[in-house]
Design a protein around this nucleic acid. Structure first.
Lengths: 196, 196
DNA sequence: TCATATACGGAACGCTGTTCCGTTTATCAA
DNA sequence: TTGATAAACGGAACAGCGTTCCGTATATGA
């Protein structure tokens, strides 16, 4: 308690992160993303560690709680989807970029089915995710909407957040042809954005 | 496999259920309801069995899966709340009965916070509950609405299911004064039902 | 090349839900 | 009232989970 730690601690980074550690972290994230999408977010950590070829100790060194791994994967995918907005905006005309991103966003939601329950489950470990979600997606979509509206091709009176929520709600439909149904409804929504 | 069972099996009920077994079942349900409301639906079965003064074997004889106990409690409470509709209809004038039951229904929802996550969690064990919920509450509320509307005091253009859902949605608000807020919004809704 | 902080693997721990089985007891015919 | 018996009981034991611990291995910078 009264002892002083004997670490250098000159400035902040005492030593660079070891290369193998960084490699394992990346590997674990990749494996976890794959496994969460395939078998759901309830997949045991042991299985993920084994698939990555590391021990559970290694996994826990990087992700002290199981939820840390889940949130890390979630953030990664939010980042990827938000980044797609910029890519699409650069590669396609505004209205086409908007439509393509909304489809991309629908795919993102479909892959997050398992998480939905955890998210509003009251577990404080996931409390920060909705904010992260909105903080990244709202500006991304707002830019696409504005660029498209500026060409006169689409409406100007739709708020980015409302559209995000609407597609989110459409994505919760269940049943055998749920994916099809959602996709069709989203296309309808996209059509609805066009200016008459 | 090829052996024939040697039980009598004349008609269906070979022997009446033992009195102690029935007592334990009732006791377990009562304890589970109390514990689920207090500490949440994730409370370990061991704790419930201990609080009821029985072994886990006894609990599992009656409720082969944990989810069976949860659904049994849920059905019990749905039944109780639906029955309250009949009681209130008999004790109060129609519009008063309607208002009182909507408050009672709000309380029911408040106690079910923990379950919400489990319900739309995709777990097939709980798949039948939403149907049970609707099958009991919709007719109950429809009768109250109709009786009240018949006096001319309240609107006639509100569907029971819509009202159930609306209050359900109002009940998901969180925060420190969530219960207060929900109660106030429900009162607003009740006022809105009155005919001008 | 070597000392050492860092990272590693996997056994072990504690807590779940669930099963199993030897013991107890309510029930019913005599 | 009294046995015989099916039914029910209690709780130890099992399997699977998240998480911790620690002896061993290794990347790193002097």
């Amino acid at each position: 308690m009264s002892e002083v730690t004997d670490q250098p601690e000159k400035d902040g980074s005492e030593r660079a992160i070891r290369a193998d550690a960084q490699r394992n972290e990346d590997l674990l994230l990749a494996v976890a993303r794959e496994v969460f999408a395939t078998k759901g977010v309830d997949t045991p950590v042991r299985e993920i560690a084994a698939k990555a070829g590391v021990g559970v100790g290694t996994l826990y060194r990087r992700f002290p709680r199981r939820s840390d791994l889940v949130t890390a994967v979630f953030r990664h995918e939010v980042d990827a989807c938000a980044a797609a907005a910029r890519t699409l905006a650069a590669e396609y005309p505004p209205t086409e970029a908007l439509a393509r991103w909304l489809r991309r966003y629908t795919e993102f939601l479909a892959a997050k089915k398992g998480l939905a329950a955890a998210l509003h489950s009251g577990d404080p470990a996931y409390a920060a995710l909705p904010d992260y979600f909105r903080a990244n997606f709202e500006p991304a979509l707002a830019r696409l909407l504005q660029a498209s509206a500026a060409t006169g091709a689409t409406r100007t009176d739709i708020a980015a957040y409302d559209l995000l929520r609407a597609i989110g709600n459409l994505s919760v439909s269940s049943g055998p042809d749920a994916a099809d149904h959602t996709a069709r409804m989203v296309e309808l929504l996209i059509d609805g954005l066009r200016q008459r």
